[in-house]
Amino acid sequence: KAKLLVLLYAFVATDADTICIGYHANNSTDTVDTILEKNVAVTHSVNLLEDSHNGKLCKLKGIAPLQLGKCNITGWLLGNPECDSLLPARSWSYIVETPNSENGACYPGDLIDYEELREQLSSVSSLERFEIFPKESSWPNHTFNGVTVSCSHRGKSSFYRNLLWLTKKGDSYPKLTNSYVNNKGKEVLVLWGVHHPSSSDEQQSLYSNGNAYVSVASSNYNRRFTPEIAARPKVRDQHGRMNYYWTLLEPGDTIIFEATGNLIAPWYAFALSRGFESGIITSNASMHECNTKCQTPQGAINSNLPFQNIHPVTIGECPKYVRSTKLRMVTGLRNIPSIQYRGLFGAIAGFIEGGWTGMIDGWYGYHHQNEQGSGYAADQKSTQNAINGITNKVNSVIEKMNTQFTAVGKEFNNLEKRMENLNKKVDDGFLDIWTYNAELLVLLENERTLDFHDLNVKNLYEKVKSQLKNNAKEIGNGCFEFYHKCDNECMESVRNGTYDYPKYSEESKLNR
């Protein structure tokens, strides 16, 4: 008799109507990190870190770059004969040098303040090359056809396309004075040089004057150069050297050249137009028929994500570079809930034993079982409120962090190594801060989002509990077992918050 009662009780308990509160689960393989956990499985997430590029040089917003090819900045601007293909260059979106560009200054020497000139050019998007001192009329008392084997072109001695090597005419090199007034309405880049012979005999042979000088002056520039005559090792078949100089001439300003020898005179100059998204990159990537809004030396990035880990040097509207390998923000729920887990921000989770793959029309909802059958029903209101809140948060985070910009490298010469090392340390410090901030932001927001979901499920549970009161009992896994019969209409009233407690209280009292 006792065995019969136990079996009867078990049958009745199993047959009781139930309603459970749960949440969506799926077959997603997404994982995120939080402050407290690593690799948390979630139903949905968004990636904030771009880690792919196309490996190509592309047009930037429809404008092609200027590819210097086998030449570098120095060779292009001075007019190395091997860089003749660059003479027609007028406009570009950015400038590309190759790491091993070999054609710079063909006659050995240095372009002074080269690093600063590169910085200036990094904001130039177009130029006009014009004859600042016409070759045939500007130097009537001097020979202007100086050439050298060091600047050979097609097997013949030649010289820079933008400079003139002035030497004596006959047996004399009379003092020369020439000036140019900038009437271009924009900055003009003027380049010139000073020749330093290897011996007094060479000085006399070329310029006749043993104590020659070169003077260059404008409103913002004033220097006097004296040739340094000295024996030097042979470089590119030359014992002599040429140093090259430049200045930016403001609109309306005048530049005056005065010399008694050794002047490498300007022939062509450049009127410059600035462009905020221009820059110089060093890259071996090849040019393709493609378009982008962000270019790196590795390749083009076409992404609206706020961060990238491809390269710190970028041109155009680019994500911020960070050292992170993963920045994924959760938008959905835990896919593998932890039992009795309390989140960092106070939300209680884990009283549900598992997510439901059968509930596909919402994030949170119900599963019921009664004599009429069983089924899932999503709670659309709480789901939609959660979707709206999380979507707004993700968009806000992306908008705040998605300050796209150009980031170019800084140039230092060989004598500025300590400054370069200090600059690298400062840049590394800023990069570490950006990386830390980005990672911390994602970790915190992921923790908040998961706790937010847990709290929403808990609130749904409490909503049902407050309606049923003692007409049902909690069975410990997020479910309630009714003390009365609850048909589909009754189940719907529980879900929509209109459950009639008094209607079922007498039946429940008897069954309790």
Rank of each mutant, 00 (worst) to 15 (best):
P140I: 10
C58W: 09
D84K: 00
P81F: 03
N80R: 03
L86Q: 09
I95Q: 05
L121S: 03
K59M: 08
W92E: 03
A269V: 02
S93E: 08
T34K: 06
Y213H: 14
E277G: 13
A212W: 00
L121Q: 06
F144D: 15
F159A: 10
S91R: 07
A230D: 00
P108R: 06
I73P: 14
Y207D: 08
T167N: 04
P174S: 14
I256G: 07
R118P: 03
V32K: 14
H239A: 10
L166T: 10
A217R: 03
A231R: 07
E50T: 12
V149T: 04
S122T: 14
T247C: 12
G55V: 04
Q238V: 10
D237T: 15
H44Y: 08
F270T: 04
C151W: 11
V46N: 01
F257T: 04
V190D: 00
I19Q: 13
S85I: 14
Q67N: 05
S85E: 14
L121T: 05
P197T: 06
G170D: 12
C106S: 06
T43R: 05
V32D: 15
I112W: 00
A64V: 05
K38I: 02
F257V: 13
L164T: 01
D171I: 13
K3F: 12
G79A: 12
L49H: 04
I63E: 09
A16R: 03
K61W: 05
I255W: 00
P266S: 03
W92K: 09
A231W: 13
L5E: 00
A25I: 01
H24K: 14
T143K: 15
F11I: 10
T34W: 02
S219H: 12
A269E: 02
Y9S: 14
L166H: 01
N243W: 02
Y160R: 00
E202F: 02
D171V: 12
L60P: 05
D51C: 06
N243E: 08
E187D: 15
K70H: 01
W92C: 15
G62F: 06
A212Q: 00
S138P: 00
S138R: 03
V6D: 01
L7T: 12
S93I: 04
A41V: 15
N103T: 06
S28H: 11
V46K: 12
V96G: 04
V32L: 15
N145D: 13
K38P: 06
L7I: 13
I255Q: 05
P88R: 09
R90S: 09
S152Q: 14
N145R: 08
I95Y: 02
L191R: 03
P108Q: 01
V42I: 14
C20V: 11
I63F: 08
F144W: 13
W267F: 06
L263V: 11
L189N: 06
V149P: 00
L5T: 07
C83N: 09
A13L: 13
S208Q: 00
L49I: 02
N183Y: 12
A10M: 09
P266E: 03
T282K: 09
R236E: 01
N243S: 10
N220K: 12
D33Y: 12
V12C: 09
